[in-house]
Amino acid sequence: MSRSPERVPRGVSGARFAPAFLLLLGLAATPLGPACAAEPGRGFGLGRPATAEEIRAWDIDVRPDGRGLPEGSGTAAEGEPIFADKCASCHGDFAEGLDRWTALAGGVGTLQSDNPVRTIGSYWPYLSTAYDYIFRAMPFGNAQSLKPDEVYALIAYILLMNGIIADDRFALSNENFNSVRLPNENNFIEDNRPDTATLKDGEPCMNDCKPQVEVTMRARVLDVTPENDDNGAAKRAIE
């Protein structure tokens, strides 16, 4: 029943989309009962229209193409005192990161090292992510409190700390936002797993798979398990 064409949502009959969608309907095999099959498949009359004001209140996301950026502007010079007031206690005066809190600047040239430092300047592909994240989640514990001009000013300050802009009077705005590109944008690739053996490469070995086995590393040497945490050994965090 769930495979009948009537159950395809309105407007998804685009040529590129339809085959995948129909295939998925078959795979999903959703165990909907007869009562569902009797419904028109248009939402069962549930929910109500969202008002424009409601959508404005929650639709806070920003995409790499700039969609979602609110009107506003700010300079690094304007951002510096805001950063000092609202961000520096965790991220450091110069966005270098304090303790285990995230560094937002620096790290260029470290990605192939044993200690890669992933900052907005060294790692992030898109600047839009900074706007999206700063407004929705920062300052930590006082989210969604910044004005657009403040967010632009903070991003300008972070760009200055990363050496991506040089002028602290440059006004970053929704108009020129997409003119700023981050240096690591082109170093992201699509998922190409599986990247290790599958049965196509042969059955897994069952006997005499390798020569003598020796223990090469022991957790007790580092001994950073919480219950055992009585020495100051190096600890590698997950960030």
Partner: peptide
Amino acid sequence: WHSREETSKYTDLLANGKSRRF
């Protein structure tokens, strides 16, 4: 959207400096 949790985090940095995303 390329949100923070799918760019800055939850991307897989490889030895050659490239990162897998999604």
